[in-house]
Structures are given as structure tokens and as C-alpha cells.
């Protein structure tokens, strides 16, 4: 029962947090900023509308939003929010889930190519390239976690007696992992400095340009999927910062969501104070993230 409630809270609250990022960015710019619930309003507006489809497109274009949203929801079923055991979990689910996210990406890219637009093709090419690198970075983190607690499932990483967190026996290494994962989060969810969700020039976009031709409820599904994906990565980091305390699910949920807010605030601050990287520097950026977690593995080898 607890699991279902935790899942429900997560599913409903995910669109709230990107609002926090916007608020932070507005604060830095000295503006008032949109209301916190702005993303809910956007979703509601999109759901009310109809759609315009390009004559170039086929059913693959309509599959894109469906698959990417379903993939993101699938991940939520396996995630132990606030250390509460998730609905489902098995040894190896971490690999499965990152591949499920992979199929969401596959169809997003295919849908972008389906529109016959040169800009969307360019976005898809960039997404394919950068995603490959960040996937490698994520798997290095999984390798490290396997070294640390011998498990391969999200539930075993973040709940139970052997949860991985900064307070654990190898906490120092996790500092590296947190920085690395934060960099991967920014890259995978198309945030500054890799991609700018607020940019207006199609040539410089990555994720936004792939979904240019989607409209109405389709666009809402895509947006929802990307909120969930961002929420998943942020929750991953939040769980690393602190494992659940011995205080019952309610206090844990409170702790978890405050840490999560902190992660989103950190994203907002990063977006406000850093500039976009040049496109040819993005691979180096993701490789740095890869190097950090790889480095953490080397340190586990026999040294510490």
C-alpha cells in the first residue's frame, strides 16, 4: 500500500519540480518568474488541444510520444522512493530499466527523422551521439554500485540495510559519483550546459528540435515523459546523498522530497550561472563524467 502511495505521489508531483528550476532561474535573472505550477498549466493546455500532423509522417511519428512516456513510467514502478520498497523489483532490473529508457529514445529519434525536417534530423543525430556516451557513463556507475553492494536493482541500491549513500562505508567515492551523475543528468535531460530548453534557435537545440512537429496531447505525453525522466535521475542523486533514516515512511518521504528539491535547485543554479558549451565540447563534458565514475571504480580496486 505504501508503495502505491509513494508511486502516486511521485507520478503526480513530477511536473511540479521543473517549475522550481524556472523559479530559480528567474530569481537569478531578477525576475518574478512563472508560478510554481506552470508545468501543470502547460500540460492542461496541451491536453485540451488537437493536433496537426505532417503529411510526411507515418505511424512511427505517433509511436514516439507513446513509447517515450511509457518507458519513463515503467522506470517509476521499480524505483524505491524514499526507501519505500517499490512495486516491482528483481536482480538485474537496473540494466533492464536503462535499456527501456533506450527504447524510448530510439522511438523519439525515429519520430524526429519521420518528419523529413533537416533540423529534426540534426537533433536526432546529436541525441544519438550524446546518449551513447552518457549510457557508458551510467553503466560505469552501475559497475561501481555492484562492487559496493553486490546488487543490480534499484530497490537494493537505495533501500534495505545495505543501501548506498554518503554515510556508508565508501562514502568518499560517492562524492565523485554524485558529481558524475549530476553531469549525466544535465546531459541526458537536455539541460544547460549541454542543451538549453529555453533556446529559440533550432540549429542549437538537441531535444527540443526533435519534438518540433509534435503538438497537442502528443506533446503533452512527451513533456510528461521528460519530466519523469528528469525526476528519476534527480531521485537517483537524492537517494545517494542520504539513505532512509530510522523514522518511518512519513519522515523519510519528507527527507527525500527535500533532498530532491535541493537537487532541482542545484540544477536551476547551474543553469543560471553556466553558459552553453560549444557542441564540439559536449563529448568532452560527458567523458569527464564518465572519467569521474571510472576513476571511482579504479579506487575500489584494492586501494581503499
Amino acid at each position: 500500500m505504501e508503495s502505491i502511495i509513494a508511486l502516486g505521489i511521485a507520478l503526480i508531483s513530477a511536473p511540479l519540480f521543473p517549475g522550481i528550476i524556472l523559479k530559480i532561474k528567474a530569481l537569478f535573472a531578477g525576475k518574478k518568474g512563472p508560478p510554481l505550477l506552470i508545468k501543470y498549466y502547460t500540460l492542461a493546455k496541451l491536453l485540451r488541444k488537437g493536433s496537426v500532423y505532417s503529411t510526411s509522417t507515418t505511424f512511427v511519428f505517433r509511436m514516439g510520444p507513446i513509447v517515450s512516456c511509457a518507458a519513463a513510467v515503467m522506470v517509476f514502478l521499480f524505483f524505491p522512493f524514499a526507501g519505500i520498497p517499490p512495486l516491482l523489483s528483481f536482480h538485474g532490473d537496473a540494466v533492464v530499466l536503462f535499456y527501456i529508457l533506450g527504447i524510448g529514445r530510439f522511438f523519439t529519434m525515429a519520430a524526429a527523422l519521420d518528419t523529413a525536417s533537416p533540423f529534426e534530423g540534426m537533433g536526432a543525430a546529436r541525441e544519438a551521439f550524446f546518449a551513447t556516451l552518457s549510457e557508458a557513463a551510467v553503466f560505469v556507475v552501475l559497475i561501481l554500485f555492484y562492487r559496493m553492494n553486490g546488487s543490480l536493482s534499484l530497490a537494493a541500491y537505495f533501500s534495505g540495510p545495505h543501501a548506498i549513500s554518503l554515510a556508508g562505508p565508501q562514502g568518499a567515492l560517492l562524492l565523485l559519483v554524485i558529481v558524475s551523475l549530476f553531469m549525466t543528468l544535465l546531459a541526458e535531460n537536455s539541460r544547460v550546459p549541454v542543451d538549453d530548453p529555453a533556446t529559440h534557435l533550432e540549429l542549437t537545440m538537441i531535444h527540443e528540435v526533435m519534438i518540433l512537429d509534435h503538438s497537442g496531447p502528443d506533446l503533452a505525453l512527451i513533456e510528461l515523459g521528460s519530466f519523469y525522466k528528469l525526476f528519476f535521475y534527480a531521485a537517483f542523486i537524492a537517494c545517494l546523498i542520504s539513505s532512509p533514516i530510522q523514522a518511518g515512511p512519513f519522515a523519510n518521504t519528507l527527507l527525500f522530497y527535500s533532498l530532491l528539491t535541493a537537487v532541482y535547485v542545484a540544477i536551476g543554479i547551474t543553469e543560471s550561472i553556466t553558459a552553453r558549451l560549444k557542441m564540439n565540447l559536449v563529448p568532452k563534458y560527458i567523458l569527464t563524467s564518465f572519467a569521474l565514475s571510472f576513476f571511482a571504480i579504479i579506487l575500489t580496486m584494492e586501494i581503499f
Partner: peptide, 17 residues
């Protein structure tokens, strides 16, 4: 290049281990 240099750095650490 920078990418190769980063990989070389990781390789150097492994080598020194």
C-alpha cells in the same frame, strides 16, 4: 585530442596501480 587525453589519464592510473 582532449578525449584521447582523458582516456590516457585513466589508462595511466590503471598502469600505475
Amino acid at each position: 585530442g582532449y578525449h584521447a587525453s582523458i582516456f590516457t589519464g585513466l589508462g595511466l592510473i590503471l598502469l600505475s596501480v
